[in-house]
């Protein structure tokens, strides 16, 4: 299975634009960009993403709170979540893994490689999901 649909949650408009160019224009994914957690929760069921790219620091509902809400949705219980954060200290990163993130991408990120990186993360995620596919 290939990664096709990505839900991106980010309050900073500039970054939303960059990510959209990187993922849609460069890598050809289908993207749904949301500017807050609330919007993401509203969109997620209809969009049914393969992967969610979630900004950690957002006004109002932050990344971790958003994740909890998203997990409350039936269709979203298993969707892999990748955090994106500017707080890159080990302890800070660890809390996202503890909350269930499959990967953490540090800001600033390499825009030209973002698509490949997410695709790789998604493949690794699939392997953990179906251990019988190991061979």
């Amino acid at each position: 299975m290939q990664l096709a649909k990505i839900l991106h949650v980010e309050d900073d408009e500039s970054i939303r634009i960059i990510v959209e160019m990187a993922l849609v224009d460069l890598s050809g994914f289908t993207l749904c960009a949301c500017e807050s957690g609330v919007e993401a929760i509203a969109q997620v069921e209809q969009f049914a993403p393969d992967l969610i790219l979630l900004d950690a620091m957002m006004p109002g509902m932050d990344g971790l709170q958003t994740l909890v809400k998203l997990r409350g949705k039936d269709s979203c219980r298993q969707t892999p979540v990748v955090f994106m954060t500017a707080r890159i200290q080990q302890a800070e990163k660890q809390q996202y893994f503890d909350a269930g993130a499959v990967a953490v991408i540090e800001k600033p990120f390499e825009a030209t490689q973002l698509g490949d990186e997410l695709a790789a993360i998604y493949q690794r995620y699939l392997l953990t999901l179906t251990p019988t596919n190991l061979e």
């Binding site: 970054i15 960059i18 990510v19 160019m21 800001k107 600033p108 990120f109 825009a111 030209t112």
Partner: peptide, 12 residues
């Protein structure tokens, strides 16, 4: 955060 945008934009 702004650095991310600048860096991303320049990379692209």
């Amino acid at each position: 955060t702004p650095l991310t945008s600048i860096h991303g934009a320049l990379s692209l």
